[in-house]
Simulated assay, not measured.
Amino acid sequence: MHTASRSEFLNVRGLRYHVRHWGRVGAPKIVMVHGWMDVSASFQFVVDALQGDWHVIAPDWRGFGLSERSGADTYWFPDYLADLDAILRHYAPDEAINLLGHSMGGNVVGLYAGARPERIRRLINLEGFGLKANRPEQAPKRYAKWMDEMLEPPTMRGYASLEAVAARLQKTNPRLTDARAVFLAQHWSAQNADGQWEILGDPAHKRMGPLLYHVDEVMACWKAITAPVLWVEAVHTNMWDWMGPKPEARLEIDRRLGHLADVQCKMMDDAGHMLHHDQPEVLARMIEDFLA
């Protein structure tokens, strides 16, 4: 049995945002934000494993899940920070919040917690490593590639059935059980007019952004975080695919973690990058121990 969730729709900076809630209104809050090509329902298994009395609030980011798409040809990363700021002002205007982010969401919360340190009680970052550091000389080709991508409309492939969507999820993450894959497929996709099942993500998210990743600016934000941070990595993560070869990337990640004033680092065994799907019970215990 899953803990029941309820949906709410909120106007966030002109877009109709879907926000999922679990637990008792009035209980201590945990705001959970998902990663790229994911949805708020992704946290269901972690919520099911929580033992305490919590009010969990999880939005679908703009252009994902049931939230409205921006209508633009490019999604700009700072918009996620401003969206999160508006959501926190709505649900917790006068209190510091427990904030958790996974992957892309982890990158958002790391920046946000540095820009608004007073708004964060405790911060939990699940594999929000960032990206490889860029060099200025990469800019010309980056802009050219971005303009090239504007010439073709982005597309999402369709799937013949929910079972096919579940199989696709398990192909990406072989640790995903059949039951969890079926649950996620129902929230991760919807049937279109042609009867095909489409992923609930704006295809424009697949386009690269034109701006380089400035790791020094990100680290300045991390350094400004005043809340205690729980940093969780999976032993079998595939982050080396985007961070580079493990020996060099490990050194860079540890260097970045050195910018956090108060951080606990945890490694999760028998889990990959989608650690909230692979070991939700272990993660729930980590979360509650940290928030206590």
Rank of each mutant, 00 (worst) to 15 (best):
H2F: 00
R6Q: 00
E8Q: 15
N11F: 11
V12Y: 15
R13Y: 06
Y17V: 08
G26A: 06
W36T: 00
D38P: 05
F43K: 11
D48W: 07
Q51P: 04
G52Q: 12
F77H: 13
A82R: 12
D83M: 00
R89M: 08
A96D: 07
N98I: 15
G101Q: 13
G106C: 10
V109F: 01
Y112D: 11
P117E: 07
P117H: 04
P117S: 07
L126I: 05
F129Y: 11
G130K: 11
A133F: 01
N134Q: 04
N134K: 07
Y143G: 00
W146R: 10
M147I: 07
L151T: 13
Y159H: 14
A160W: 09
A164I: 01
K171L: 12
K171F: 15
T177F: 03
A179P: 14
R180G: 00
A190W: 10
N192V: 13
G201K: 04
P203Y: 00
H205N: 09
L211Y: 04
E217R: 15
M219R: 15
K223E: 14
A224F: 12
W231P: 02
V235L: 12
D241G: 04
E248M: 11
A249W: 10
R256I: 08
Q264W: 03
A271N: 09
H276W: 05
L283Y: 01
M286T: 05
F290I: 02
